[in-house]
Design a protein around this nucleic acid. Sequence first.
DNA 1: TACAGCCTTGTAATCGATTCCACGAGGAGG
DNA 2: CCTCCTCGTGGAATCGATTACAAGGCTGTA
Lengths: 353, 353
Amino acid sequence: MASIKDVAAEAGVSVATVSRVLNDHPSVSADARTRVLAAVEALGYRPNAVARSLRTDQTRTLGLVISDVMNPYFTELARSVEEEARALGYSVIIGNADERPDLQDHHVRTLLDRRIDGLLVSPTDGGSPLMLDAARAGTPMVFVDRWIPGVDVPVVRADGRAAVRDLVAHLHRLGHRRLAIIAGPAATTTGSERVEAFREALGACGIDLPDAYIGQGDFKAESGRRVTEGFLDLPEPPEVVFAADNLMALGALDAVRARGLRVPDDIALAAFDDIPWFVHTDPPITAIAQPTGELGRAAVRALVDRIEGRAPRSVTLPARLVVRRSCGESGESARTGADGQSGENSARNRSQS
Amino acid sequence: MASIKDVAAEAGVSVATVSRVLNDHPSVSADARTRVLAAVEALGYRPNAVARSLRTDQTRTLGLVISDVMNPYFTELARSVEEEARALGYSVIIGNADERPDLQDHHVRTLLDRRIDGLLVSPTDGGSPLMLDAARAGTPMVFVDRWIPGVDVPVVRADGRAAVRDLVAHLHRLGHRRLAIIAGPAATTTGSERVEAFREALGACGIDLPDAYIGQGDFKAESGRRVTEGFLDLPEPPEVVFAADNLMALGALDAVRARGLRVPDDIALAAFDDIPWFVHTDPPITAIAQPTGELGRAAVRALVDRIEGRAPRSVTLPARLVVRRSCGESGESARTGADGQSGENSARNRSQS
DNA sequence: TACAGCCTTGTAATCGATTCCACGAGGAGG
DNA sequence: CCTCCTCGTGGAATCGATTACAAGGCTGTA
């Protein structure tokens, strides 16, 4: 593959001049510029990004370490991150931690070794020494969706408290009084926060959240199934199961079906994180929708601000309730739109890009 | 960040010796090795992958350019590619072409500039000059899922012909005679092949495929909706709609619902590419399942073979029919397993990793 | 004792870019 | 006509690694 030397030779100038043309530095004569451009064209020359990075100490690459690519929420996040990064002239390397701290560390280490300019993380756990050291050492970093308390890193996330209150009010109005939650790992902020928001909202309605109604999941489908089976085995099973993420909701639906029970007649179901498929399940699932695309874009902007020397801002955007039929009929379903679809998350809008 | 020079100074040896220790070259004394390792530890030194790549001319990175990350089929493919690559000591950079040739070119160019060791592509179109040149110039490359005819590049894909024959036989047995297909872009191999396989299978049952029953989609949900609406407006609408991918099937389902019609009573629906959600839709959707994970792994193995100087092999694996309820009841649903779930693609198995 | 050969080590070239610095040519001003 | 600037250009250092080559020390054998 042709190098800058070949171009210089072909154009009859020095490599310095070629470099200046390529980085459109002002002091190059029109004549030299033309000859260089012609040589570049003739040789099909493309600058070696590796060499350039070594010299300039910047790779124009962002690292994104997410908890689980197979989760549609994170897939969409990854997509919007890549789009915004591309618009700002950066590439993105995605690392899939699969909710495993060791894998998360592997990816962080690899990305750091590659000298990425900045790191976007949705931490799987309370924070490995590796990641904390990197943050302290000054690696530009932004947390997205989940974060680690006590670390001085901007956070871009959705606040679900109001939406959870709306959800609980909705369930209360439908007559439900025994409400259970499938929680995420306590080590993650989203894992514990959602339980707290739920407990608080229940309190406001004068309802208590007994320990038996808090199941411990891990944000994956299988745990949703297991926890739900536990709930159904209780002497007094809950009337509603609220899953702290979409995959666990899927597992819960499986478990309910496997018993031959029906949603919402025998038990109601709701989920955190809305996805296009929830419109098409049987029944369509009531969920709390995050402004996923906007979160991804905001996170990239914050990170690039930090990289390019501007002051990054933490961002919190509101999530909102999308009522469908999985908690029972109520005549109020018109609240959030004609068919219960949200703008940003509908399959319809998604595919028009 | 500490460099190899700092380590050399700290250990009281030359950089050459440090490098030899790090790459466990045989001729290093035990004493020197210990001192170097201690210095590495003390400084928290990590080799700069950028510098190493420049010198060795290999990045230990693979590029993966796929047509649409939001499509669960490709998400799973990406996941398995990353896993196998990691096992073989490579990283993966994913580029999302979003079914747009210009974006595909952008990613290919960026990846080439970064001097990735090899490229895995699921082409969006017939092949841009850029990609063809790269292949001819000797860039290690492997096509996965889709390919470009006439280019000397190994292909890893699933053969759906047999499964399509099974599907058509199944539909025929259920009494359906007017069968339509939502095709993918003709520029993609999967776009045209699936139509051909469908037409051939229909022929074997003595059924004809009129042009009016071939709708032109683009592998995205919106096109599935549009095409299906066209089918429903026909004087004699089809009894079955077969979508050439999962997203278009979703759009078709939307369109049918919007008319107040029901699946499978009013119209039957089947799809190419099975995904975990198809179990949970209303009704569960009959689909042709590809061995996605195995395809991703085989593709990486072929590419790495090529990179490391071994002869890469093309691989074709069979797809298979998974019967559910979207084409009508038939008592034969036990054919493919107790609940119509496939092993590899079920949400249940997915989450156990 | 002398020499061959092995083991260990360091010096320096190299990969492909960017960029500081010096230099020569040419124009403006005194 | 001389000086001073500006402009365009090239030489060479540099980024952080790897690795060819040379050289020194040691052992073993004649």
